[in-house]
Computed example of a mutant assay.
Amino acid sequence: MDENGKFSTMESDVDGLLNLYEAAHLGKCDEEFLNNAIIFTKDRLSTIVKDPQLPKPILVRIEHMLSSPTQRRMKRLEARLYMSIYENDEDNDQDILELAKLDFDTLQQMHRHEVEKISLWDVEGARKVGKCYEYVMSHLSDTLDEFAAETVASPVGIECTKTTVASSGMLQEVAWREHGHVPSLHDYLKVSAKTTLYWTLACISFFGMDASNDVFTWTSTFLKILESAAIICRLMDDISGNECEKERSKCATALDCYVREHGVTVQQAKQVLTNLVEEHWRIINQEFLSNDRVPAPLLMRVLNFVRMMETAYKHVDGYTHSEEIADYIQKILIECVHQ
């Protein structure tokens, strides 16, 4: 930074810009320096990708990072997507790449076994079951890794998919019934967040060693990290799927609440709620880093849940329009990395 506190020495340093961009998304609350770093790096990288002379591998890498930082991506999906980028890196390590591919192959076989079992439940509802399994797979990726060595279907993944199928679609209805009218944004998020917590608690019941009495006591206090995770999930769903949600459930969305409460346009409301999502990501970072009470693997469940929403709802309502995320499902479950 120069004497005026502005970034000045890395205007064209792509690696430096990308590293700073990634690191800045780990910022906590009130870290204005990192907020400014995000703005600066995003602006510079967005300018660099417009250069027609930019080598394609660098272009692909920048566009990948700008679409969503690594911290917010589904773990296994990011591994699969990054392999394709790393393959074209002239400085790549072929041994590391091959080990990564073998690891991915092993876990992919387990996922396929799970999908095979799950697909037998309900042929008519296979589409919904499949999407719910994808969410569970991202939410519990660390737990599922434990079963990968035997390439067998994990009881955790299967049971949590059942829970997800049973509870999906009920969150807004609960918020609606609680108020009987279009509530304020604050009330809407308060009720929806608590309902999301109940779903999370149901999943925790399958976590085995992590689900001690102390952990259940912690979750029942509804600390900030759980609240922020639930609010991000609700907001991202409503921002990208506002029209679909209203048609499907006839219930108010967060956008409806904010528009009615403040008399703004839908686009203005979307921008405000998007900024609110960013605030809650910083709260999650802060709570995660300051935690000294709860096992880290459990907090990873919370983080992975929000990552799943980032993937499914960043640009479109991926739950309703599953064809929009079909490529992701293809890469995780079907495509072989050894081609």
Rank of each mutant, 00 (worst) to 15 (best):
Q267P: 01
P297K: 09
I284F: 04
I239A: 00
Y198K: 11
A24C: 00
V152E: 15
D256Q: 04
P55V: 12
S212T: 11
N19S: 03
K331W: 11
R282W: 08
T265G: 08
R177W: 05
G125E: 04
T217P: 03
D30M: 13
L171K: 13
M209A: 12
L303C: 02
V191Q: 03
P183A: 09
K101I: 09
E146A: 10
D327C: 05
G16P: 07
S46T: 02
D122G: 01
A126H: 07
Q286L: 13
L171V: 03
L197A: 00
F206M: 07
T9C: 03
E22K: 00
C132Y: 07
N242A: 12
T151S: 10
Y21N: 02
S84A: 15
E279W: 05
V14K: 03
I225V: 10
A230T: 01
S138W: 15
S84W: 07
A24W: 00
R307I: 00
K50G: 02
A23I: 02
Q53A: 15
H186L: 06
K131W: 08
A148N: 09
A229D: 02
E31G: 01
Y133A: 10
H64C: 02
V272Y: 10
L18I: 06
F206T: 12
D103M: 01
A252R: 00
N36P: 05
P183T: 03
M110C: 15
Y328F: 04
T143Q: 08
H280L: 02
Q268S: 08
M170D: 01
S212D: 01
I158Q: 11
W121D: 10
G27R: 13
C203D: 14
D292L: 07
P52I: 01
